[in-house]
């Protein structure tokens, strides 16, 4: 469950909004989990954007 919570925390950080209650839970997360989640989600974000713009510009 912890990796999923880390993913949720990083996703919330992407948006910039987080409930105070959820943020209290985030404080118990391990730093390594957060870094791993951030790297995965940034890669997915860039990959997703690339897929989107490739699809839009496809002949």
């Amino acid at each position: 469950m912890r990796p999923l919570r880390a993913l949720a925390a990083v996703l919330a950080a992407f948006f910039g909004v987080r409930r105070g209650r959820a943020a209290n839970v985030d404080r118990q997360l391990r730093f390594a989990d957060l870094i791993a989640a951030a790297i995965i989600l940034v890669a997915l974000f860039v990959g997703g954007l690339l897929l989107l713009v490739s699809w839009l510009t496809a002949p």
Partner: peptide, 10 residues
């Protein structure tokens, strides 16, 4: 406050 911290990081 929490959102502000997260938004700054974002």
């Amino acid at each position: 406050y929490t959102s502000m911290v997260y938004a700054t990081s974002s």
